[in-house]
Amino acid sequence: MSTHRRTVRASADRVWAVLSDGWLYPLFVVGASRMRDVDAGWPAAGSRLHHSVGVWPALIDDTTSVVACDPPTVLRLRARAWPTGEADVTFRLEPRGEDTEVVIEEDAAVGLARMIPKPVRDPLLTWRNSETLRRLALLAERRAAPL
């Protein structure tokens, strides 16, 4: 499991507002290119995001499902990107005064990506998730800024 942390200069509720708006995922999740649909119950357990991954014209349509949801602190996902496979992803929000420490944990669950040795896989996930958390922070901090 690859784990990465970032302090976000926004409340857990502000960060959760970004996570719970499925239409925003391509803005912060590295690799997500576009949203095709978001289930009405998102982010309730069992609901799905219908997204595309990759770069046009080589886009792959797939889904991400909610495994567990405990607002505003935990969101566990199963992200699909076949043919590479599926990943288990967990976002944890830990309030720190007016700020929030966001922890993302990710690892390949099934498929070709699972065959990549962990010492090779982890640095790639660390880079990807570092950028994902940077983008998430920018969105949440902007939402927290006065108009």
Rank of each mutant, 00 (worst) to 15 (best):
W16R: 01
P95G: 05
S11H: 03
E131F: 03
E131R: 14
W127G: 11
G111C: 08
F28H: 03
H4D: 02
S33L: 00
V110Q: 11
A145Q: 15
V18A: 06
R92G: 13
A17C: 00
L125R: 08
G46S: 08
L24Q: 13
V66A: 08
L27E: 14
E106V: 11
G85T: 06
T64L: 09
R9T: 14
I60V: 15
E106T: 12
T132N: 13
A12W: 02
G54V: 02
S2F: 02
V55K: 01
V30D: 09
E131I: 09
P26F: 11
G31N: 03
A68G: 11
V74R: 15
D61Q: 07
D122Q: 06
A140P: 04
R121H: 12
A87G: 02
P95H: 04
R128L: 12
T90W: 04
V102F: 05
G111K: 08
R92K: 12
E94S: 14
V38A: 03
T84D: 11
L138R: 12
D70S: 12
R142Q: 10
L75F: 09
V53C: 11
V120L: 14
A10G: 10
P72M: 08
S2L: 03
S47L: 09
G85Q: 08
E86H: 11
P146V: 15
M1K: 08
T63W: 13
A12M: 03
A81K: 12
V8N: 04
W23T: 13
P83D: 07
E101R: 14
C69F: 03
A58W: 15
G85D: 08
L93Y: 06
G22D: 11
D107S: 13
K118I: 05
G111D: 11
A113I: 04
A44V: 14
W82K: 12
A140Q: 02
I60S: 10
E105G: 05
T73H: 04
C69V: 10
E94F: 07
R9M: 13
R76W: 00
H51N: 07
V53H: 11
S33H: 12
D122S: 04
R80W: 05
G22I: 08
R78I: 14
V67E: 13
R76K: 09
A145C: 11
A144W: 01
A10W: 04
